[in-house]
Design a protein around this nucleic acid. Sequence first.
DNA 1: CGCTATATTGACTTTGCTCAACCCAGGTGG
DNA 2: CCACCTGGGTTGAGCAAAGTCAATATAGCG
Lengths: 246, 246
Amino acid sequence: MDENLENPGRYLIAKLNAFMRTTSGSEDAINEMASRRVAYADRGQDIISEGDEPRTVNLLLDGWACRYKMMEDGRRQILAFFLPGDLADLHVYILNAMDHSIAAITPIRYARLAPKEFEEISDAHPKLLRALWWESLVTGSIQREWLVSVGQRDALESVAHLACELFLRLKTVGLVQGQLCDFPLTQLDIADALGMTQPHVSRTIAELNRTGYVILRRGQLEVKDLERLKKLAAFNPNYLHHLRDD
Amino acid sequence: MDENLENPGRYLIAKLNAFMRTTSGSEDAINEMASRRVAYADRGQDIISEGDEPRTVNLLLDGWACRYKMMEDGRRQILAFFLPGDLADLHVYILNAMDHSIAAITPIRYARLAPKEFEEISDAHPKLLRALWWESLVTGSIQREWLVSVGQRDALESVAHLACELFLRLKTVGLVQGQLCDFPLTQLDIADALGMTQPHVSRTIAELNRTGYVILRRGQLEVKDLERLKKLAAFNPNYLHHLRDD
DNA sequence: CGCTATATTGACTTTGCTCAACCCAGGTGG
DNA sequence: CCACCTGGGTTGAGCAAAGTCAATATAGCG
């Protein structure tokens, strides 16, 4: 976290590097953005709720969050997981009301950027603007791939795909050490993301762990054989739109 | 179609009116866009395929299309349906390769806009640009709602929700007459959109028709009781982000 | 140490899938 | 004009995947 405070935009910078070479000018701009209007939320807490008028672009600095929708009868669909460096709804201030909520999964630190600040910075750095555009298109692409998971993949494939995706996304922002990364999702989070029930997630994780390709447990994910995991998940990395595979 | 040829952007104009009052200036700009580089495709034909480098922004002028992904083993997930007036991937020319394909469901007419033309027009009409932004955000919102359908709704709710959505979207562009609209989807299309199998779609449509709220058949959809249909589908119109309900 | 969260497991049920036969309507060509 | 073909659509029987409900176990945490 120390390094993080000096270089608060580092995860976003790392991610954009998967798409372009950031210049030191844009890096400074990102760090500038990321050090203004910093806010905190505890696990479980909404940082913005369905129906609210969106006023800020949120940049996640530390921790995990999720986008979700709640149905009247209490069913919850998680629509996306946010990892450090992810931006929530770049242009959403065009719309009048949020159609979903965003909540912290772990305690988080995030920057709440006012549209005006955001525009100033992107006007001054057209290359950065382009990169941010790319990031929001990739977010859309991930959203579509999730529909493929929920619509077409069976339980084992789905869980494997999610593990694969999160591992690779964490890797691009530098949050993987060797084969290990943090994994704070509960089985209920996974269930609500993949359209399954929690007991079935439990059984499916057990089955996945039995393959030996990964060790997935609350708190930590270890990927022992990424290639086989990808194969099992029918994982095609194109949708992440990285310049190179990593 | 006659009126359409004089006023080729009419469906898009009608749609944007759900968000803002279009000025005659922007209407002319839209019609201008929509009359350049017009192309045709037959039913079943891809207009752009996964892996292709995207070169144009596509505006659907007539007919229905879909965005889809194919898995190696032949499973297909339909990600979105395009109706007249819909734009495909406004900013996709930022990315190097399509991560999905777009195919005609009926014979279609569409405009293939070069990025440069597109930028000229939007530079000249900032209000229009904002409206187009809105339309792409709504497209993203629809994408998310589909995940709720596939992840949380059961078969009957899902099919009802899809009927509801398509009916309302057609209504916004003026393609509903009374309670009737075209409905060219096959049961296999619906199945691949909702993550079901075709025989189960058949049974589910039969069950839905038995409620009397709709008459859904190949070619045509008749909505007899929209309110009850919405209720059955757990349909919350907020995600369409219209200024007023219609 | 005990409380609360989460995870595991078992027995049973249900939804939706599979496979396959059959039906039906529209379009084409003899 | 009719026979046939083809692309949907319907239906049935049996099955498998995943859901439900509930009891039990486990693990952090205060």
